[in-house]
Design a protein around this nucleic acid. Structure first.
Lengths: 250, 250
DNA sequence: ATGCATTTGTTCGTATGTATG
DNA sequence: GCATACATACGAACAAATGCA
């Protein structure tokens, strides 16, 4: 950060600093992608070229590419070369963001997998988000969001159970949250506030999102309200980096 | 054989009473925090110490800490220990967010340390952000942002060098970016777009921000424009999690 | 720079109590 | 009563990160 950037795919490596060379190479390429130096679809130099530029053995470059390939950031094709995946999804936060619209805006097919639907007692965070007393009954949907069959989000949606009696069944039956809410009479809602943080994946989160465990999750917490301003939902969503980025336009 | 030694972190546990031991431990620590026995930033005893004090296995203590960590009340750092979480700084993104105003809004004293000021050639990402051709000359300020002397941000600010001749000197001399811009005739600017991502700290970033290396950084990229809509600045800022969160209200 | 002590992270295995059918 | 599944709890060992002499 404090030193001049030496250009794409040739960042200086630190030897013997505890960080493996292949990890530094992988990070360097990753950085070039998030910086836009390497655009989606761009062709990477050959493994031989990169090994001379980084000053390492070709095996070391291959180890980095293997990691990036497993993370879905790079596609390696035998006999052709390696390419940056065209997969970075911008999640533009607005008052009426819907999952399916977001995915369709990127010309991908939205999908989802319901992991869990149940009623439980609100913990402190959920209670605060919904404006309920701690311990109040809430309906919770846990869901994996897919774009062209690829996991892009892992989210928990919390609703005040008392106010929407048939919601639990509707969530079980419907493909989308919007649809389930419509079935219990909520035809419109908007995003009131969004809080963004980041943390490392825990449990099986990395596995579900098909991402390596040493990459952070972007985490959003948001409150949805109906037309009258009443709180309908408190959602916590996790997105895999660097495949997903969040964009605000004030 | 629970002896009556009613001090912090040693409340007697009820065995076989329906409430899991790890939940009782978590509740006990939580109580010590609300009672003020454990202040924000305070170090907890080691897992081994707590396991002997509570008379349980280390796993059971870890289960409690995992719960508290997930709730954001406790911060666990490998090789160092566990700590009561510091207060979270909410960074409310708006069109006219200024660093010093942000910090003052939390009743803390804003500060900063200039790490580097120089002129250099724009790489692809910076050029795209500023709307300049790649390789154009840009002035760059790298700065550590402080709140009550504690680092809360690490940011690089890029300006089109050609348009603001005296900017480099002004950045050297002034305490804030806003002040330096005012000196070269820019009296107002607003945030146009903000992109949020997350990555692991590299190089000395974790050290500068005084955070553990295994926690992610929140990274924002934003474009600032003047009243006429001309691009003035492209900034990349890193914030330590979970000390800083980003909040957006549409 | 190197090794050592401390502390958390991870993964085995084992046993027990509880709810369910 | 019995089989099963699940959460809880304990024990041991090693890996990884940190701080210090």
């Amino acid at each position: 950060m404090t030193q001049a950037s030496p250009g794409p795919l040739a960042a200086p490596l630190e030897h013997g600093r505890g960080i493996a060379l292949w990890q530094q190479i992988a990070r360097s390429i990753e950085q070039d992608v998030t910086d836009g130096v390497l655009a989606p679809g761009a062709r990477l130099p050959t493994e031989a070229q990169m090994s001379t530029r980084f000053g390492v053995n070709r095996h070391t470059v291959r180890r980095a590419l293997e990691e990036l390939s497993r993370a879905g950031l790079v596609q390696v094709e035998q006999g052709r070369g390696s390419f940056i995946a065209e997969d970075v999804l911008d999640y533009a936060i607005s008052a009426r963001t819907r999952f399916s619209e977001w995915i369709r805006a990127h010309n991908k097919e939205p999908g989802g997998r319901v992991l869990d639907v149940r009623e439980l007692a609100a913990d402190a965070a959920v209670a605060a988000g919904l404006g309920l007393p701690e311990g109040a009954r809430v309906a919770r949907l846990t869901r994996l969001g897919l774009a062209d069959g690829r996991p892009v989000s892992l989210s928990s949606h919390h609703f005040p159970a008392a106010r929407y009696p048939g919601l639990l069944d509707a969530l079980q039956a419907c493909a989308s949250v919007t649809e389930a809410l419509a079935r219990v009479g909520v035809n419109d809602y908007r995003r009131q506030q969004t809080r963004v943080s980041a943390r490392m994946p825990q449990g099986n989160e990395a596995e579900l999102l098909r991402m390596p465990r040493n990459r952070p999750l972007l985490v959003t917490e948001n409150v949805n309200v109906d037309a009258a301003g009443a709180v309908i939902e408190f959602g916590i969503s996790c997105y895999p980096t660097p495949r997903v980025q969040i964009v605000f336009e004030p």
